[in-house]
Deep mutational scan, measured.
Amino acid sequence: AEIMKKTDFDKVASEYTKIGTISTTGEMSPLDAREDLIKKADEKGADVVVLTSGQTENKIHGTADIYKKK
Rank of each mutant, 00 (worst) to 15 (best):
A1P: 10
A1Y: 00
A1V: 13
A1N: 01
E2K: 15
E2C: 15
E2R: 15
I3L: 08
M4C: 06
M4D: 01
M4V: 05
M4Q: 02
K5W: 15
K5I: 11
K6S: 09
K6T: 06
K6V: 06
K6H: 07
T7I: 11
D8N: 04
D8K: 04
D8V: 05
D8P: 03
F9D: 00
F9M: 03
D10Y: 07
D10Q: 10
D10G: 04
K11N: 06
K11H: 06
K11Q: 07
K11F: 05
A13I: 07
A13V: 06
S14Y: 11
S14F: 10
S14L: 08
S14G: 11
E15P: 01
E15L: 13
E15W: 14
E15D: 10
E15C: 15
Y16T: 00
Y16G: 00
Y16L: 01
Y16S: 00
Y16W: 03
Y16R: 00
Y16V: 00
T17D: 09
T17C: 15
T17G: 03
T17F: 14
T17A: 06
T17V: 13
T17Y: 15
K18Y: 15
K18H: 15
K18Q: 07
I19N: 01
I19F: 04
I19G: 01
G20P: 01
G20V: 02
G20E: 03
G20R: 02
T21N: 06
T21K: 05
T21W: 07
T21Y: 05
T21S: 11
I22T: 01
I22D: 01
I22W: 04
S23D: 07
S23G: 06
S23H: 12
S23T: 11
S23W: 13
T24R: 03
T24V: 11
T24E: 03
T24M: 09
T24P: 04
T24W: 14
T25K: 09
T25Y: 11
T25H: 12
T25R: 09
T25C: 15
T25D: 15
G26P: 09
E27Y: 14
E27G: 13
M28A: 07
M28C: 09
M28L: 12
S29I: 05
S29R: 06
S29A: 08
S29N: 08
S29P: 06
S29M: 07
P30C: 15
P30W: 15
P30Y: 14
P30V: 11
L31C: 13
L31K: 14
D32F: 08
D32T: 09
D32L: 14
D32Q: 14
D32Y: 07
D32P: 03
R34G: 04
R34S: 06
R34Q: 08
R34K: 09
E35R: 15
E35I: 14
E35Q: 12
E35C: 13
D36W: 15
D36H: 10
D36C: 13
D36R: 06
L37H: 00
L37C: 03
I38K: 08
I38A: 04
I38D: 01
K39I: 05
K39R: 14
K39L: 06
K39Q: 07
K39F: 06
K40N: 03
K40C: 06
K40W: 06
A41D: 01
A41L: 02
A41Y: 00
A41Q: 01
A41W: 00
D42N: 15
D42Q: 14
D42S: 15
G45P: 01
G45Y: 05
G45C: 11
A46N: 00
A46L: 01
A46R: 00
A46K: 00
V48L: 08
V48S: 02
V48A: 04
V49N: 02
V49P: 00
V49Q: 01
V50E: 01
V50A: 00
V50S: 02
V50R: 01
V50G: 02
V50Y: 03
V50Q: 00
L51R: 02
L51Q: 03
L51W: 09
L51D: 03
T52N: 11
T52R: 15
S53C: 14
S53K: 08
G54D: 14
G54I: 13
G54A: 12
G54M: 15
Q55S: 13
Q55C: 14
Q55M: 13
T56F: 13
T56C: 14
E57H: 08
N58P: 09
N58L: 12
N58W: 10
N58C: 12
N58F: 10
N58V: 10
K59C: 14
I60Q: 12
H61K: 12
H61E: 11
G62F: 15
G62E: 11
G62I: 15
G62P: 09
T63G: 04
T63R: 08
A64K: 02
D65W: 05
D65R: 03
D65E: 09
D65C: 10
I66V: 04
I66W: 01
I66C: 04
Y67E: 01
Y67T: 01
Y67C: 02
K68R: 10
K69S: 05
K69P: 02
K69M: 06
K69Q: 04
K70W: 05
K70Q: 05
